[in-house]
Design a protein around this nucleic acid. Structure first.
Lengths: 358, 358
DNA sequence: CTTGTTTGCACAATCGATGGTGCAGAGACT
DNA sequence: AGTCTCTGCACCATCGATTGTGCAAACAAG
């Protein structure tokens, strides 16, 4: 807690101290002072006063006047997931490098909440909004549009503004093929041995399923509808689907295409309920990368979406004044089993406490 | 993109439309209108105008006047980690339920960056700051103190304001004991079979190490110094430490206490380099919970810190006017191998798109 | 009819920074 | 000396909401 604080210095305080006007102080401290022909020595004085009085500008005041806030928003489905949290990490680095402040918020994949959350961010006069994995990107678009806010879609596309997403069709193909080829030629997979679980009525799932079915047809000759089980994005729904399959067949399919790491957690929950089944002869492909999942006791082939490139592309596109609402595809990467990739965390230095405390 | 927006309605627009004064409009829309004895019918009119014109208050203006912003900050070491991201998720839910807006930022465990980030948040007039896992909590404290900002520590304690942290000593004891007891009585662990890797010169590591050593001494009779390897918080440093041990001994210790899931990733990297070693006769205890790690091919015992309770406690304590800078301990939970716990994600509903789009 | 009270609202200052405009003084030039 | 041009800054309105204060009209009490 603590709230004894003396209040912060303002340009008016510095104005009195320096004997200049507030506008001069403002100009010096926000960098526009050359344009205003302020003497170098005046500027120097004000800067040193600002220094000793720990002046920092009140961004609400600045934002009010300039109707820009320096805040850049990222709207996420959830935080608690390696894919989205690494997006957040990368996003933050980009925003900070531009001298702005990231504000990352989740909206639980609920269209209504997505719009309300966008409204809230807009009320803070954020400068840009990155809409990631939204269930209803065009709904959010309308809110942004009405407020004149620059925005862009990531991960799931909308139709009104540009979208940067991973190439889910190609990723689905890659992953499906890798699963199939992981089985030895003498015990090959048959069409009904390979199921897809998870995902729902969104663009990403559609594309992945399309890739899955295309490769299945091509390599296994058939592609039965029953092998597609879009069980949504809740871990427990996926668990129930595995449970149901297991109840009917006494085993899992030999090959599993799991639509996201969140659905994969549903598979883990299923497995926890069946401790005596060893799940040998099982190959899992998961459309998401998680280092721990990669080392599970059965082969896990994963797709890593290229978060770095997606974020970089999104920042590039959002700067363009009147970009057409096209979809920018970013190629994902196939990650073989037992692979520990480096991530944003590796950029951190490992620094020790400065002060001598336990 | 898109930026064609007509600008947003203000209280002045509504003032003209309703024929009332701006202050009346303001009072009606911020709830203080009863106190100002505004007629019900006037209020009703203004509310309906606000509705049809999609009025939302400009928070920068409100914040400037009231020197409160409705923003509540969470300062994190990193996003890209299940422990911190679930903290963020839980934090966000709490803040939103109070009608405020969460703003989650990471500072990479760098004391300098922690302070600067706090400064930035302060310049947005955030109302409260939750300082989580900071390397130098007292440094951040000074910044907050100077600005008169309420704040509290989470995960790593400071000495100036209250801290809510998990009971690392007890957690360390629990985990160490569970590792030891996981070995059968006929092939018991000897003191030099049990190593601790990861962590550094912080309170949490100290306490965990203290618990580790106490239990080792008690159950195994000895506790050699060499078995403590505080390799920091970077995955690659942990990897190198495992590599070094392996080079000297030709194997890993039979029992491993890994100080965090981030260090655990270092272990994975090590294992990826040694694909032919099966690492049987290995038991890992990890001070963090990750569902995928829990199902690895060797027994992994994990500690789940009680994120829900920590956040709830922190919100409780931060409201108290002059709370003493004491440490509030929250008991963590021991998670046996192959356990899939539910998390914040399970609170989500699984909703489909409203509009008919692919 | 007069004085007091309540109702219902308007007015205006304020929060801190920004940026257009104006203007005095110094120097240059004729 | 008179006119111009620069230099270096001050003044003031402005962004949108909040809030203390004032005041007319309506009503009640005497």
């Amino acid at each position: 807690m603590a709230s004894s604080g003396k209040k912060k210095a303002t340009i008016y305080d510095l104005s009195v101290l320096s004997g200049s006007s507030p506008s001069t102080v403002s100009a010096v401290l926000n960098g526009t002072w050359r344009k205003r022909r302020i003497k170098e020595s005046t500027a120097e004085l004000i800067r040193s006063l600002a220094e000793t009085h720990q002046y920092t500008a009140n961004r609400q005041a600045r934002g009010l006047r300039s109707s820009r806030s320096g805040l850049v928003g990222l709207l996420l489905p959830v935080h608690d997931n390696r894919y989205f949290s690494s997006l957040a990490q990368t996003f933050e680095a980009h925003v900070r490098s531009k001298g702005q402040c990231p504000i990352v918020v989740s909206a639980s994949r609920d269209p209504e909440e997505e719009r309300k959350t966008a409204e809230t961010l807009i009320s803070y006069s954020i400068d840009e909004l990155f809409i990631c994995g939204a269930t209803d990107p065009d709904g959010v678009h309308e809110v942004c549009e009405a407020a004149g806010l620059k925005h862009i879609n990531i991960d799931l596309p909308g139709t009104k503004v540009p979208s940067v997403i991973s190439d889910n069709f190609e990723g689905g193909r890659l992953l499906t093929e890798a699963i199939i080829r992981h089985f030895p030629a003498d015990r090959p997979l048959r069409p009904r041995d390979l199921y897809l679980f998870g995902g729902r009525n969104d663009h990403a799932s559609h594309e992945r399923i399309r890739g899955f079915r295309a490769v299945k047809k091509e390599l296994l000759g058939d592609d039965p509808d029953e092998c597609i089980q879009p069980t949504g994005y809740a871990p427990n729904n996926a668990r129930k689907a595995f449970e149901a399959f297991y109840a009917r067949h006494g085993k899992l399919p030999r090959g599993l295409f799991v639509n996201s790491s969140i659905n994969f957690e549903g598979l883990l929950r299923f497995m926890a309920e069946h401790p005596h089944d060893n799940f040998t002869d099982l190959v899992v492909g998961c459309y998401d990368y998680d280092p721990f999942a990669s080392f599970l006791p059965f082969p896990v082939i994963m797709i890593r979406q290229d978060v770095e490139r997606m974020i970089a592309k999104a920042f590039e596109v959002i700067e363009q004044p009147r970009a057409a609402p096209r979809i920018h595809l970013v190629e994902p990467e196939l990650v073989p089993p037992r692979t520990a990739l480096t991530g944003p965390l590796d950029a951190l230095k490992d620094i020790d406490l400065p002060r001598g405390r336990p």
